[in-house]
């Protein structure tokens, strides 16, 4: 298996813009840990959810150390509530810093979303209003997080099911402005982009034209599912429970053709298949990267 991946050496061996190698990674699931640790060369980096490794001690942290030893690590937070109305949770920032200090990750990323309000944690990435007061609040929060954690972070574009009439900014311009004001990078989730464009009838090409692709330090691909809304219209849900769809791979190819090769992560959080199935998806990503690289050389 690993032999098939030696073609990666044709690409720049140096680290990507944010420290992750410009190859293919996988969202690490417990079921696959031991198999991957037995042959770390199967993937170029892994990503973990920060909140799953905030233990005080025990076997979870031992596993974390083994993971951090084996690969360049991407720590992906899901609970900081950067788009929240309130100040960032100091306790949570402390937990994140402990995790970052322990593992020296190649990348730390979070979401343009909120998940806490008035002391309640909603365990979901909830949509923010794209207006100027929110923009300013997000900028304050990211500055605080980056200062406190001592790292430059990547901010991920969300998948959304509703849009607010109060929004006065284009989502991509909103992200671009945040990145320019805070110095943070972007995590471009092309599945989220595809889902949101479908749900809100946006153009992905237009969306992409509003951001500087150089800011993108990592790309996510994942699967989504289609459901019917109350009006009988199709709504795409960011389920991470299905294989990566063909349109998402096409969007990925478009992005790296335009912006260059980036670290690409295959995410699957629900209905976790055997590792071999996920590795077929990482192979598909590799093929796209190779195609793009050769096209660039020619």
């Amino acid at each position: 298996m690993s032999g098939a991946h030696s073609t990666m050496s044709v690409f720049a061996p140096n680290a990507g813009p944010n420290g992750l190698p410009p190859g293919v990674g996988i969202g690490l699931k417990r079921a696959h840990c031991e198999a991957l640790l037995a042959d770390p060369s199967l993937v170029d980096f892994v990503e973990i959810h920060a909140e799953n490794f905030m233990s005080a001690g025990g076997p979870n942290l031992i596993l974390l150390d083994r993971i951090a030893e084996a690969w360049p690590l991407s720590i992906h937070g899901v609970g900081l509530s950067i788009g929240g109305k309130e100040r960032l949770d100091r306790e949570h920032l402390h937990r994140l810093r402990k995790l970052i200090d322990r593992t020296s990750p190649a990348s730390f990323s979070e979401h343009l979303a909120w998940s806490s309000h008035d002391g309640v944690y909603f365990n979901d990435l909830l949509p923010v209003v794209y207006d100027t007061p929110t923009l300013n609040r997000v900028i304050v929060n990211i500055n605080e997080a980056q200062d406190f954690l001592g790292v430059r972070m990547l901010l991920e574009n969300p998948s959304t099911y509703v849009a607010f009439s109060a929004s006065s900014w284009h989502e991509a311009e909103f992200l671009q402005q945040i990145a320019q004001s805070t110095g943070c990078g972007l995590l471009l989730d092309v599945n989220n982009l595809y889902v949101s464009c479908y749900n809100h009838d946006w153009s992905a090409q237009d969306w992409l034209s509003h951001i500087t692709l150089d800011l993108v330090g990592e790309i996510h691909v994942a699967g989504h599912e289609a459901i019917q809304d109350a009006e009988g219209q199709t709504l795409l849900i960011d389920s991470h429970g299905d294989p990566v769809g063909e349109p998402v791979f096409e969007l990925l190819e478009h992005v790296i053709t335009r912006g260059g090769i980036r670290p690409v992560l295959v995410e699957r959080d629900n209905d976790i298949p055997p590792l071999s199935v996920l590795l077929q998806e990482t192979d598909q990503v590799r093929q796209i990267i190779e195609r793009t690289a050769y096209a660039a050389v020619l």
């Binding site: 799953n52 899901v78 979901d124 994942a222 429970g241 629900n270």
Partner: peptide, 13 residues
């Protein structure tokens, strides 16, 4: 692990 960044299976309108 408990924390994910995806919609739960069966999430619908």
């Amino acid at each position: 692990g408990h924390n994910d960044c995806a919609a739960g299976p069966g999430t619908s309108c």
